[in-house]
Measured scan of single mutants.
Amino acid sequence: SKDAAQYVYDEAQKGVTQVTVNGVTFKFDNWQKLLKYAQKLLN
């Protein structure tokens, strides 16, 4: 959902490398990768 994507995006902006959405945890090597993933979700 857009809300989940926005949440992931906001978390990535904080510099975190993992985020949990609806009980599913996504882990990334660095926050830039998390940010890229979030941007994909938002598009």
Score class of each variant (00 low, 15 high):
residue 32 Q to F: 12
residue 11 E to K: 10
residue 14 K to L: 09
residue 37 Y to F: 13
residue 38 A to R: 00
residue 6 Q to H: 09
residue 23 G to F: 14
residue 9 Y to T: 13
residue 39 Q to N: 03
residue 8 V to E: 13
residue 18 Q to T: 07
residue 2 K to Q: 14
residue 8 V to K: 10
residue 34 L to S: 00
residue 4 A to K: 08
residue 28 F to P: 02
residue 30 N to W: 14
residue 38 A to Y: 06
residue 10 D to H: 06
residue 29 D to W: 13
residue 10 D to Q: 05
residue 26 F to I: 12
residue 1 S to D: 08
residue 42 L to R: 00
residue 3 D to M: 03
residue 27 K to I: 15
residue 11 E to A: 03
residue 39 Q to E: 05
residue 21 V to L: 05
residue 20 T to V: 14
residue 42 L to K: 01
residue 22 N to R: 09
residue 5 A to H: 03
residue 34 L to D: 00
residue 38 A to H: 01
residue 26 F to H: 09
residue 11 E to I: 12
residue 10 D to E: 12
residue 7 Y to W: 12
residue 42 L to M: 04
residue 33 K to V: 04
residue 42 L to F: 07
residue 17 T to M: 07
residue 21 V to I: 14
residue 31 W to Q: 00
residue 15 G to T: 13
residue 26 F to S: 02
residue 16 V to W: 10
residue 22 N to D: 06
residue 35 L to W: 03
residue 16 V to G: 06
residue 27 K to W: 14
residue 18 Q to Y: 09
residue 3 D to Y: 02
residue 33 K to Q: 09
residue 41 L to R: 01
residue 23 G to P: 01
residue 36 K to W: 11
residue 30 N to S: 12
residue 10 D to L: 13
residue 30 N to P: 04
residue 8 V to A: 11
residue 41 L to D: 00
residue 36 K to S: 06
residue 25 T to L: 10
residue 14 K to N: 11
residue 31 W to K: 00
residue 9 Y to K: 01
residue 26 F to A: 03
residue 26 F to G: 01
residue 18 Q to S: 07
residue 4 A to L: 11
residue 23 G to I: 15
residue 20 T to Q: 05
residue 17 T to L: 14
residue 15 G to P: 05
residue 26 F to W: 08
residue 38 A to P: 01
residue 25 T to Q: 06
residue 33 K to T: 10
residue 16 V to E: 05
residue 24 V to Q: 07
residue 27 K to E: 05
residue 32 Q to P: 03
residue 26 F to N: 03
residue 10 D to I: 15
residue 21 V to G: 02
residue 19 V to A: 07
residue 20 T to G: 05
residue 25 T to P: 12
residue 1 S to I: 13
residue 9 Y to N: 08
residue 8 V to N: 10
residue 4 A to Y: 09
residue 39 Q to L: 11
residue 7 Y to Q: 08
residue 7 Y to L: 12
residue 16 V to N: 07
residue 42 L to E: 01
residue 32 Q to S: 03
residue 8 V to S: 11
residue 21 V to F: 08
residue 1 S to W: 15
residue 13 Q to V: 11
residue 42 L to I: 04
residue 6 Q to C: 15
residue 4 A to W: 14
residue 8 V to Y: 14
residue 17 T to I: 13
residue 9 Y to R: 03
residue 27 K to C: 15
residue 34 L to E: 00
residue 23 G to K: 05
residue 25 T to V: 11
residue 36 K to V: 06
residue 24 V to P: 04
residue 43 N to V: 01
residue 28 F to I: 09
residue 37 Y to D: 02
residue 40 K to G: 04
residue 7 Y to F: 11
residue 30 N to H: 09
residue 20 T to H: 12
residue 13 Q to F: 14
residue 3 D to I: 06
residue 17 T to F: 13
residue 23 G to D: 06
residue 31 W to S: 00
residue 25 T to K: 10
residue 32 Q to C: 05
residue 42 L to C: 14
residue 22 N to E: 05
residue 7 Y to S: 14
residue 11 E to L: 10
residue 39 Q to W: 13
residue 39 Q to I: 05
residue 12 A to W: 11
residue 28 F to K: 03
residue 38 A to V: 14
residue 5 A to K: 03
residue 30 N to Q: 06
residue 7 Y to A: 14
residue 3 D to C: 15
residue 40 K to S: 08
residue 19 V to G: 05
residue 41 L to G: 00
residue 19 V to Q: 04
residue 17 T to H: 07
residue 42 L to S: 01
residue 6 Q to G: 07
residue 8 V to L: 10
residue 25 T to N: 05
residue 27 K to G: 13
residue 25 T to W: 09
residue 16 V to C: 12
residue 15 G to L: 14
residue 20 T to N: 04
residue 43 N to W: 12
residue 30 N to Y: 09
residue 11 E to C: 15
residue 22 N to M: 15
residue 10 D to N: 08
residue 35 L to M: 02
residue 24 V to M: 06
residue 41 L to T: 00
residue 16 V to L: 08
residue 21 V to C: 14
residue 12 A to V: 09
residue 28 F to C: 15
residue 30 N to A: 11
residue 23 G to Y: 12
residue 27 K to Q: 12
residue 10 D to V: 13
residue 39 Q to S: 03
residue 9 Y to G: 11
residue 13 Q to K: 05
residue 35 L to H: 01
residue 5 A to Q: 09
residue 1 S to P: 14
residue 18 Q to M: 08
residue 24 V to K: 03
residue 24 V to F: 09
residue 28 F to E: 02
residue 22 N to Q: 09
residue 5 A to L: 13
residue 13 Q to H: 07
residue 19 V to D: 02
residue 41 L to P: 00
residue 12 A to K: 03
residue 35 L to K: 01
residue 1 S to C: 15
residue 11 E to N: 03
residue 17 T to D: 06
residue 11 E to S: 03
residue 16 V to P: 12
residue 21 V to A: 08
residue 35 L to D: 00
residue 29 D to S: 12
residue 8 V to M: 09
residue 4 A to G: 03
residue 22 N to P: 07
residue 22 N to F: 15
residue 25 T to H: 09
residue 34 L to R: 00
residue 33 K to S: 08
residue 17 T to V: 13
residue 5 A to N: 09
residue 28 F to W: 06
residue 17 T to E: 07
residue 18 Q to E: 08
residue 43 N to R: 10
residue 30 N to T: 12
residue 9 Y to P: 11
residue 8 V to F: 10
residue 32 Q to W: 12
residue 23 G to T: 12
residue 40 K to V: 03
residue 10 D to T: 11
residue 37 Y to M: 09
residue 23 G to L: 15
residue 42 L to W: 07
residue 32 Q to D: 08
residue 42 L to Y: 03
residue 3 D to V: 01
residue 36 K to L: 07
residue 5 A to P: 14
residue 14 K to V: 13
residue 37 Y to I: 05
residue 22 N to I: 15
residue 29 D to N: 08
residue 11 E to R: 01
residue 13 Q to Y: 11
residue 25 T to G: 05
residue 43 N to T: 02
residue 21 V to Q: 06
residue 2 K to H: 08
residue 42 L to D: 00
residue 21 V to P: 06
residue 2 K to P: 08
residue 40 K to N: 04
residue 31 W to R: 00
residue 28 F to R: 01
residue 10 D to A: 08
residue 39 Q to D: 02
residue 27 K to M: 15
residue 41 L to I: 04
residue 30 N to L: 09
residue 2 K to E: 08
residue 17 T to N: 05
residue 20 T to W: 12
residue 7 Y to K: 06
residue 24 V to N: 06
residue 37 Y to R: 02
residue 3 D to H: 08
residue 28 F to T: 02
residue 28 F to H: 02
residue 29 D to C: 15
residue 21 V to E: 07
residue 28 F to S: 02
residue 34 L to Q: 00
residue 38 A to D: 00
residue 8 V to T: 10
residue 7 Y to D: 13
residue 19 V to W: 11
residue 16 V to H: 03
residue 34 L to N: 00
residue 32 Q to E: 06
residue 19 V to K: 02
residue 6 Q to T: 03
